[in-house]
Structures are given as C-alpha cells and as structure tokens.
Amino acid sequence: MAMNGTITTWFKDKGFGFIKDENGDNRYFHVIKVANPDLIKKDAAVTFEPTTNNKGLSAYAVKVVPL
C-alpha cells in the first residue's frame, strides 16, 4: 500500500537518501528506485511503497510529487 513522505536527506554523489514517512519513521531509498530522479531534493514530497531490507525500513517505487 502506497505511503506519503518527505525526503529528509539526499546524498546525490552516493545515490541514496532517506524519507520520513507518514508515521514519522525514516526509510532508506536508492536513486534506481525513483521514477523521476531529476526531481529529487531535500524536503520534496514523495509517494512510495514501503518495504524492509536487511538494514531496516526502506522504500521502492518512489515518485517525487512535482510542485
């Protein structure tokens, strides 16, 4: 089920960042999981599918909501 969130941290040079989800949890995401990576920036609103990996909470099918 899709969730909403906000990008809180973005490491462009490393290709990953973190999203604060609607429950207040931080989720890892990688640029290859983003549909529109050219719009990635700190504080951008996103929708995504929540999941977990071996390191904890993460996100896939991430879409940055255009302003």
Rank of each mutant, 00 (worst) to 15 (best):
I40C: 07
G5W: 02
F11R: 05
N36P: 02
D43F: 14
Y28S: 05
T6S: 06
N23P: 01
K55E: 07
Y28L: 05
D21M: 02
M3G: 04
F16S: 03
P66W: 09
Y60I: 15
F29S: 00
K63Y: 13
F48R: 01
D25G: 07
D21T: 03
G24R: 04
Y28K: 03
G56V: 07
D25P: 01
T47H: 06
A35T: 13
S58R: 05
S58Y: 08
F11V: 06
D38N: 11
F16V: 04
K14W: 11
P66D: 12
L39F: 11
A45F: 13
N4L: 10
N36K: 05
I7A: 00
K55F: 14
I7W: 02
N23H: 11
D38P: 07
T52P: 05
N36R: 05
G56E: 04
K12H: 08
K63N: 10
F48Y: 02
N54C: 11
I40D: 00
A35P: 04
I7F: 01
V46D: 01
Y60S: 15
E49T: 15
A61T: 06
A44M: 09
G24M: 05
K33S: 15
K14E: 07
N23M: 10
K63H: 12
V31C: 09
W10L: 03
E22V: 08
I32D: 15
T6K: 11
L57Y: 06
G15P: 01
N4H: 14
D13P: 06
G15A: 06
R27H: 04
F11A: 03
N54T: 12
P66C: 12
A59G: 03
K14T: 05
G15S: 06
T8K: 10
N23G: 05
I40E: 00
T51M: 13
N53K: 07
E22K: 06
V65Q: 11
A45C: 12
E22I: 07
D43W: 15
T6M: 09
G56W: 09
D25T: 06
A44Y: 04
V64T: 03
A59N: 02
K33C: 15
V62P: 01
I19F: 03
D13E: 11
N54Q: 13
A2Y: 12
N54L: 12
K33G: 14
F48T: 00
D21Y: 02
D43Q: 09
T47K: 08
G24V: 02
I7V: 09
V62Q: 01
P66K: 11
G24E: 04
G24K: 04
K55V: 09
P37V: 06
F11Y: 12
V46L: 02
D25C: 11
T6L: 08
A35D: 11
G17A: 02
F18K: 03
F11W: 08
G5M: 01
T47E: 08
K12V: 09
T8Y: 08
P37A: 07
M3D: 02
V64I: 11
D25F: 09
G17E: 00
K20Q: 09
K33H: 15
D38K: 12
F11M: 06
I40K: 00
A45N: 11
T6P: 00
I40V: 09
D43A: 09
K55S: 08
S58H: 06
T6A: 05
A44P: 01
A61W: 10
F29K: 01
K12P: 14
G15Y: 05
I32V: 12
L39G: 06
T9I: 14
T6F: 12
S58T: 11
N4P: 05
T47G: 02
T47D: 03
T52Y: 12
V62G: 01
L57Q: 05
K12A: 12
P66L: 11
D13W: 10
K55L: 11
A59I: 03
I32T: 15
T51Y: 14
T9P: 01
P50V: 04
V64C: 05
N26Y: 15
G24P: 01
I40Y: 04
F48S: 01
V65N: 08
T6H: 11
V65G: 06
L57M: 08
K33T: 15
I7Y: 01
T6I: 14
D25N: 09
K55W: 15
V62N: 01
Y60H: 15
G56P: 04
K12Q: 09
L67S: 13
I40P: 01
L39Y: 10
A2F: 12
I32A: 15
E49D: 06
T51R: 13
D38Q: 12
Y28A: 04
I32Q: 15
M1A: 12
L39N: 07
V46T: 02
T52Q: 13
V64L: 05
N23C: 12
V65D: 07
W10D: 00
I40N: 01
A44E: 05
A59L: 03
T8G: 05
V62F: 02
A61D: 14
V62T: 01
L39M: 13
V31T: 07
N53I: 07
G17N: 00
A59S: 06
N54I: 12
G17I: 03
F11S: 05
A44I: 07
L39V: 07
G5D: 00
A44W: 04
T52N: 10
G56R: 12
V62H: 01
G17C: 02
K12E: 10
W10T: 00
I19E: 00
N26T: 15
H30F: 07
N26F: 15
K12N: 08
N36I: 04
K41Q: 11
L57C: 05
D25R: 08
R27C: 03
T52D: 07
V46W: 01
G5C: 03
D43T: 07
P37G: 04
F18R: 03
N53H: 09
G17S: 01
T8F: 07
G5I: 02
G5R: 00
P37N: 04
P66T: 14
M1D: 09
